[in-house]
Design a protein around this nucleic acid. Structure first.
Lengths: 338, 338
DNA sequence: CTGAAAGCGCTTACAG
DNA sequence: CTGAAAGCGCTTACAG
């Protein structure tokens, strides 16, 4: 009776049938109506729920998806995670969350841990991608989708933001509204997004004939408000920009705070544009112009790609890109120029 | 060779020993040095990693913890989740994330799903607690810790915020800085935090002799910025408060935005105080005075309580409370009163 | 210390 | 359609 949770065996005994029949009924395989009735009744009576671990072991599916993300505290990952969680749940998968930090070794740990077979697939959004990580991805025995740019020879599904397009849109917007000394406050250039955004910024400045002054570039140690505060003061003093493009919204918030402290009106004196279009953009004063890189869309697509591949493991790896959208708000509005 | 992942059996064959010996060596049970060497070598050679599902089935431990939270998008839960994740990982547990929304039925689904045995324990931070949820918690076959107030007869560990104390500190702070028409913008009163905060607000107002005007109270449909915007305009017009206490930081942000639009200076005309002390509080203009209810501390404690109980399942359920701290910032600074 | 055997709770060919 | 049996990959008494 109360000796632990009921098993198929207990249900079978209670119903007076074989365990095979119990399993068949509960999995919806063909059985006689009487059999179905007997098994259902017994299962209900005993409050039977199949054991997920035993089932996983047998069918070689865990119905779990691993999600590895650099920082669960960054709002852009929160958007992504929310989308991934919703898609996974809708298909009956559980989500196993790993916060890897920006350290590649934590990503390696995660990739190695997958060898224990606790998840059917992986969604990974790494901040830094090393050769070791790429190797580990190549050797991975479960399907993976990477959110963020990776080399084409790594045979995993790939969803990327169009950082370059986003940077271009932002700079063109600033250019069109009359800004000419446009500074770029990037995050670390050895990260996937940092590298892409730095290249894109240089390119668009060259095309528009803007100064490619080293003074107009700064690099924070991390994509966080704190790291931004450490360097943006110097940037705005030495370079006297009339606009600052930040590598993400957190760095943009640091920029807004610093400009406020130093009495430089935004957008009158300096325009500020962020990237990621997180919820923070609506909260600042002035509200923050930001380039949406579709974090939720990337999460949704990544989950869909993975779930598709779990159905059909053998099709070619797919690559998808999400297009950026510029959201113009108060921090760069043209009319307010002093 | 390449026929799927290596198993204990393959390692045993390769090393020329029994599977029992392989298991013993790999689990650090006593074995002869030669045995250890042979097994280690074979395991390394084959790249062996034990299968988590098979191990779980045998030892009746999954090394997974389920974490159920109302909204992964609310910054207060992000803080909590980050703490829970870090503690769980440090003890070798994986975290299975469920976003339940504010709907009790999703919490019930989660509680029922635990019967599948995919997790060794549960950390639950529900927004609404119904009798059905309490019943399901009583019947739960794995240890659980609830973050948020629950009745004493539910035999689970419990970590709570001191909402009442937090409300009191906030109102006293406003009172001491000269505010007398203090409005309260609450979230839904049928939620655990909403109910506690409403009661506490009434009590402290009575004690301080403040008006218990119904006009000075409003209730948003949800603890979100959008829901706040729907009702706070009306609140500030009809009640003409000189201070607004918001049920959380998101509602406080809505208040700041609305006051700005209507040209009511903060804190000169109206002071604003939030609750939860999320990262948002540092981003608004003016920065937001907020009562920290120790979300990260609650997450950490909840994880510790659960991990302790997994070691030693039989001690009495524990109840812990985290003390609030008032963080005074620009939105209520005394000097700025007009 | 080591090995042969049983068994965790399921599912799935295989006979009947 | 149904049941007896094997087996997923481990761990753990039990003998020796």
């Amino acid at each position: 009776m109360s000796e632990g949770r009921p098993t198929v065996g207990r249900v079978a005994a209670y119903a007076g049938v074989s365990v095979a029949s119990v399993s068949r009924v509960l999995n919806g395989l063909s059985s006689s109506p009487e059999m179905v009735a007997k098994v259902r009744a017994a299962a209900d009576q005993l409050g039977y729920t199949p054991n997920a671990m035993a089932r996983s072991l047998k069918v070689r599916r865990t119905e779990q998806i691993a999600f590895g993300v650099a920082d669960v505290g960054n709002p852009v990952y929160v958007d992504m995670m929310r989308a991934v969680e919703a898609e996974a749940r809708a298909e009956g998968y559980r989500l196993v969350l790993s916060s890897t930090g920006s350290d590649p070794s934590a990503v390696l740990d995660l990739l190695r841990s997958l060898a224990h077979g606790y998840a059917d697939g992986l969604i990974l959004s790494p901040l830094r991608v090393t050769d070791e990580i790429l190797d580990a991805l190549r050797r991975l025995r479960v399907p993976a989708v990477v959110i963020g740019r990776i080399p084409p020879d790594v045979p995993v599904d790939n969803v990327r933001a169009n950082s370059a397009g986003g940077v271009r849109m932002a700079v063109e917007h600033l250019y069109e509204t009359g800004r000419r000394r446009i500074a770029f406050l990037n995050g670390p250039a050895d990260t996937v997004p940092g590298a892409a955004r730095a290249r894109a910024f240089d390119r668009v400045c060259r095309r528009l004939g803007l100064p490619d002054d080293a003074d107009l570039r700064a690099e924070a140690d991390d994509f966080t408000i704190e790291a931004g505060l450490d360097v943006v003061g110097d940037l705005v003093e030495r370079a006297r920009p009339d606009a600052v493009l930040a590598g993400n919204d957190l760095l943009a918030v640091a920029t807004l705070q610093t400009l406020r402290e130093r009495g430089r009106p935004v957008p009158g004196d300096v325009a500020v544009v962020g990237m990621d279009d997180t919820e923070l953009a609506l909260v600042t004063t002035p509200t923050l112009t930001s380039v949406s890189l579709g974090a939720d869309e990337r999460g949704r697509l990544a989950a869909r790609l993975l779930l598709e591949r779990l159905q059909d493991p053998d099709h070619e790896p797919q690559r998808m890109a999400v297009q950026p959208r510029l959201r113009v708000r108060g921090s760069s509005s043209a009319g307010a120029r002093s």
